Simulated scan of single mutants.
Amino acid sequence: MSEDNYVPKNILLTGGAGFIGSHVAILLCKKYPQYNIIVYDRLDYCSCLENLSELQDLPNFKFIKGDIATADLVTYALLEEKIDTIMHFAAQTHVDNSFGNSFAFTQSNIYGTHVLLESAKNCPSIRRFVHVSTDEVYGEGEDFNTDPMSEEHVLEPTNPYAATKAGAEFLVKSYFRSFKVPCLITRGNNVYGPHQYPEKLIPKFTNQLMRGKQLTLHGDGTNTRNFLYVTDVANAFDTILHKGQPGHVYNIGGDNEISNIGVARALLKIFGLEDQEEKYLSFVPDRKFNDLRYTINSSKLQKLGWKEEMPWEEGLQTTVEWYKKYTSRYGNIEQALVAHPRMLDPGSVVPEGIATNVGK
């Protein structure tokens, strides 16, 4: 690292028992043993302590069970652990859920972020606040001739989930401008890989095929997304943490733009079922609104030294093999595998405020 790079010491990583957050926690804990990684997570339905099991014996890892909307506990954690860096992954993220339970998205994504910002403002040791947003805040790429959206593009969210993430961003920007909280914002493409709860497209289709079920494609299946493998995304956050500048936004995007039906066909091929499309493809009613595509320009992040490394075919194969081994960690996921799931219930049995090295 150059002398100009930011060097943290004590990192509070919210949502770190979830999908992307757990991979970032694993990367940072193992790559930087001199950093202390404190994962803060309420253990919602889509997070799992087993995602962090490989960290349980590391001396620089700690877990705190808590909700980001609990101001007293957040403040206590910041002060007690001498936090200098917040990496804020905790959020409600599933678009289908936001059409039916949108108030929970406002609570977690806007109010929870506001609590974190207010706590950070009052904590003099905070030197970085990395806020994790999404490419969905840009709104729909109206056709396949749309230029990739840069970080300066106007935000035009089209669903309740994206709207709450956009609202959270405006709070982050306001705290940077008014209170000088050293905030950075990231906006990422769709991410896939191990640890993702099976309500999302790739693990959902994988688990449907593992059970001999049909693949439930929304609409005509032509909507596309750019898919980034989760370890590439973790590396992006490593880069942004150390080289990103407060006040800046960084897109995290890849080059695997694939339609939903293209994903389905790729998975059928992995399972050796490519000649049985008529049996396994089921077209179901679309979402209330389903963005055609998102396309973002990641040149700003690439100039910091990051690049996408995982090929699509290899990443997809690796993902399928992981779910064949570890899907059981999520318990009963049948409700997540329906065409339009509704899965908002924290349902945790761990008392809030417990700090532990997972498994000890």
Results as ranks from 00 to 15, higher is better:
93 T>D: 07
93 T>V: 14
95 V>P: 13
95 V>D: 08
97 N>K: 04
99 F>H: 09
102 S>Y: 09
102 S>A: 06
103 F>S: 09
103 F>Q: 10
103 F>W: 03
104 A>V: 01
105 F>R: 08
105 F>D: 12
105 F>P: 08
105 F>I: 11
107 Q>E: 12
109 N>E: 00
109 N>Q: 03
110 I>F: 04
110 I>K: 04
111 Y>S: 03
112 G>L: 00
113 T>A: 06
116 L>C: 06
117 L>D: 00
119 S>A: 15
120 A>G: 05
122 N>R: 07
122 N>G: 03
122 N>T: 01
123 C>S: 12
124 P>W: 02
124 P>I: 15
126 I>H: 06
127 R>E: 14
130 V>Q: 04
132 V>R: 02
132 V>P: 04
134 T>H: 08
134 T>L: 11
135 D>F: 00
136 E>Q: 13
140 E>A: 09
141 G>M: 04
142 E>C: 09
142 E>L: 14
145 N>I: 03
145 N>H: 14
146 T>R: 01
146 T>L: 00
147 D>M: 08
148 P>W: 10
149 M>K: 13
153 H>T: 15
155 L>R: 13
156 E>I: 06
158 T>E: 06
158 T>A: 15
160 P>R: 05
160 P>I: 10
161 Y>K: 01
162 A>W: 04
163 A>N: 05
163 A>S: 14
164 T>L: 09
165 K>N: 07
167 G>D: 12
167 G>C: 09
167 G>W: 15
168 A>K: 00
168 A>I: 02
169 E>F: 13
175 Y>M: 10
175 Y>F: 15
176 F>Y: 15
176 F>E: 09
176 F>P: 03
178 S>W: 03
179 F>P: 02
180 K>H: 14
181 V>N: 07
182 P>G: 04
182 P>Q: 07
184 L>P: 07
186 T>W: 03
188 G>M: 11
189 N>T: 12
189 N>M: 06
189 N>S: 15
191 V>C: 03
193 G>F: 01
